[in-house]
Design a protein around this nucleic acid. Structure first.
Lengths: 224, 224
DNA sequence: AACATATACTTACGCCGTAAACCTGTCAAG
DNA sequence: CTTGACAGGTTTACGGCGTAAGTATATGTT
């Protein structure tokens, strides 16, 4: 008889920094970043919390690595496309990544030490603009305007308390019933006439603002 | 002899929800939101942590109240000005409030229950646009685009690890010395030719993107 | 004077991040 | 085959966290 016949079938895949980071990302996706603790992450990996410290320096390092993983999901601006297509595509790709991992938006704030993937991404965006003839100043302005919009939109989207159209409708209903409509008439109007219309999806607002900014940049670029 | 001759001179101003919220705001401004705990806030008020629960339901309620306080610092869009001036002024006022209280940007995300001040603010913004002839849809688009930009910019600004020009220069120097310049040439160029130029202040970028969006909205409004 | 109410304090519980010490399986050198 | 170093896991422990529950006290009302 074999010395060990536990129900534990796995021969214990060894931990690694990458495995820890990916498990952290999956845990945050499933349970929210707020309930991610070293103990629970250890449990999810079949390991004690302290074992994680052999692969990440501390929890902050874990979070830094997770943010860098999210950045790696964002397409770099294409070298083949014109600047506008490249900027548009990478903005949409960035938003999609942040929809998949909503917790990442807020996390990017406190992390002041960008990882290598993040740096490469920023470098490529600026390079794309410079290559299209943007001056250094205009490239900096454009980069700031686009990223502010992308992250801000993702921030708002992540803070919405609903995901599906049904949830949206339900939230809007209870919302309308909770506050005095007379006191906030415009909010009520917008809720009824816009949010509660069939097919409403806040995510669709993204491209409106994006095109607005791209149009403005195009005009300024042409004027110089 | 009096029964008590403690050095405690104050006759114990009673707590109140407002006093607790304002103390929380001041504490977060001074020490960062991360180190705000019920115990430390109690200490700052000369009181035990549990006493706070007579005035706020729990820590989340405290944070909600603090966010609403920050919103109360933002100017409502003026009724007298044209829409563009009104939107511009309130955007600048919002950014200023978020510069004063950088922790508030991230806090707004997780809080899904907006306070009365927040609701009034949103209502006034939409009302201003509607009053200027914006359709419901265009008002919704504009509101989304502007707020995404404002919060996104504040988010980026808050995550910068420097405040003064000297700190900026210092950070940029160590930054350049830490990563291989050859690998991120565009980032390096932008750092040297833009960030390290005298008089650089990231906050100045705000108005560039803001005018870009306002210009775009003006054009769309005129075209309909 | 007696009581009700509001507000502060004390104690206790379970969870957190992580320092420090400890155990154990693997593998190279003798 | 023995030995010993080392990498990577575990155990224990500490101080801090949010907050439930129970208790004390001061104030206002009758």
């Amino acid at each position: 008889m074999a010395p060990q016949t536990k129900p534990q079938a796995e021969p214990r895949i060894p931990l690694s920094r990458d495995r820890v980071l990916r498990a952290g990302l999956a845990f945050a996706d499933d349970n929210g970043i707020g309930s991610l603790s070293m103990r629970k992450l250890g449990e999810a990996l079949g390991v004690e919390a302290m074992s994680l410290y052999n692969h990440v320096a501390n929890k902050d390092d874990l979070l830094d690595g997770m943010v860098d993983l999210v950045f790696s999901e964002i397409e770099l601006p294409s070298v083949d496309s014109d600047w506008r297509t490249a900027m548009r595509d990478r903005a949409i790709s960035a938003r999609q990544a942040l929809v998949r991992h909503p917790w990442a938006v807020t996390l990017m704030q406190s992390r002041t030490s960008p990882g290598p993937v993040t740096l490469r991404h920023h470098n490529a965006v600026i390079g794309s603009l410079r290559g299209a003839g943007f001056s250094i100043d205009l490239a900096a302005h454009s980069f700031s305007a686009l990223d502010s919009y992308i992250y801000g939109f993702a921030l708002q989207e992540a803070s919405l308390p609903f995901d599906t159209p049904e949830e949206t409708a339900e939230m809007a209903e209870t919302f309308l019933s909770q506050f005095p409509v007379a006191e906030f008439p415009h909010l009520a109007e917008l809720t009824v006439e816009h949010v509660l219309q069939p097919g409403y999806d806040y995510g669709d607002e993204f491209e409106f603002g994006l095109e607005l900014i791209l149009d403005g940049l195009k005009r300024i670029r042409a004027a110089t």
